[in-house]
């Protein structure tokens, strides 16, 4: 299987033809379409090694996240970045390539923080390993973490080693009825104090605070924080899985944006419906596609950025710093000289 993938990439490189890397296709509709023949990684699957006592798991890129999460849970452990598994279909490779992390991210780190090492095929079909299975490794440039969020444009991830963490003994949610501005302020005040937090999200006038840890610590925190219990069951699980209504496919003229902002940024573009996660650090916004320019400008003005994540009508690219764009293009050529990997349609 690996040798097949390698042979296909070598050939694509030799002939300079674009290829698009396909895991399970779970995120179709969540990113701009790519050019070229499909290169299927989904069957390059399986957990290679899992040492619960070492808190490290190694798996091939096509392994379903759901399988990994189930195996970890059976040993009382988890992928602490909580990558969304898109109804059980998402593969590890896709989760790393997009780099999406879930509600626990501000406290437990992002996907890239939990990645220890990768094996990749670069754009020439060379099989390379960066990082490893150990907690600390500063040998060479950190090309492993560079793969996370690169959307497959720097290499095809074939295998990864991840750090895992114990599941918290208990988890509970407290709900506070608050307008957006007050919710952002309260969530950040809580973050600035040593509470056992693992989630802070706001939607429709409700701030939900998730507490994790040992039973006694969570009980004490719950008592001191106040708030109400959550009547919606598994709300955070549905947030993680991106199954809340806010994530539904938008209608023809609408788009779903992901705003990445400083956590304390006051309400931005508050006229549009929003789901706020990460204590304000990530905001999902539904708005007409016609507002793209205004959204991007506001997000940049606030020290962040906006990405159109779901739409039926094209994928406008937001303007970016030209120095960084040029540097990224050189980095891409360093790993994929002919830029055959996951080239966007139209590029």
């Amino acid at each position: 299987m690996l040798t097949d993938l390698q042979a296909q990439l070598r050939q694509a490189h030799a002939m300079s033809v674009p290829v698009r890397i396909v895991g399970a296709g779970s995120k179709q509709g969540w990113h701009a379409p790519q050019q070229g023949e499909a290169l299927h990684v989904g069957s390059h699957a399986g957990i290679i090694d899992y040492a619960p006592a070492e808190r490290v798991i190694s798996a091939r890129a096509g392994t379903r996240l759901a399988e990994i999460q189930a195996v970890l849970a059976s040993q009382g452990q988890m992928l602490a970045a909580e990558p969304p598994d898109f109804g059980g279909h998402a593969t590890l490779g896709g989760a790393l390539a997009t780099g999406w992390s879930g509600p626990r991210r501000p406290w437990a780190g992002a996907m890239r923080d939990q990645l220890l090492g990768v094996e990749i095929l670069n754009g020439q079909g060379e099989l390379l390993r960066f990082g490893g299975r150990v907690m600390k490794n500063v040998a060479g440039f950190d090309l492993a973490r560079l793969m996370v969020g690169a959307n497959g444009t720097l290499g095809l991830i074939t295998e990864a080693h991840l750090k895992v963490l114990p599941l918290p003994e208990v988890e509970t949610v407290r709900v506070f009825e608050l307008p957006q501005a007050d919710a952002i302020a309260l969530a950040n005040r809580l973050c600035a104090a040593p509470w056992p937090l693992s989630g802070a999200a706001w939607q429709g006038g409700l701030l939900r605070i998730r507490l994790s840890g040992n039973a006694a610590a969570v009980a004490t925190a719950q008592q001191q924080l106040g708030g109400e219990p959550d009547v919606e069951r598994h709300w955070f699980a549905r947030l993680q899985a991106m199954q809340l209504d806010s994530f539904a496919p938008p209608s023809a003229e609408q788009g779903l944006w992901r705003l990445s902002l400083p956590q304390t940024c006051p309400p931005l573009l508050a006229d549009y419906p929003q789901l706020i996660d990460w204590a304000g650090g990530r905001r999902w916004l539904s708005a007409p596609l016609a507002a793209a320019q205004a959204i991007s400008t506001s997000a940049r003005g606030a020290g962040g950025h906006a990405l159109l994540q779901r739409s039926q009508a094209g994928w406008p690219t937001a303007p970016r710093n030209p120095t960084l764009l040029a540097l990224e293009a050189r980095i891409r050529r360093a790993l994929d000289p002919r830029q055959i990997l996951n080239r966007r349609q139209g590029d």
């Binding site: 560079l146 996370v148 969020g149 992901r258 990445s260 950025h305 990224e328």
Partner: peptide, 26 residues
């Protein structure tokens, strides 16, 4: 050339913040 990297919990484009970290001034 000046590079301005990161600033939020999600990154925009490649994770150059991670790449520069540990790059030993090269």
């Amino acid at each position: 050339e000046l590079l301005e990297l990161g600033g939020t919990l999600d990154c925009n484009g490649y994770d150059l913040l991670a790449l520069l970290t540990g790059s030993e001034g090269l």
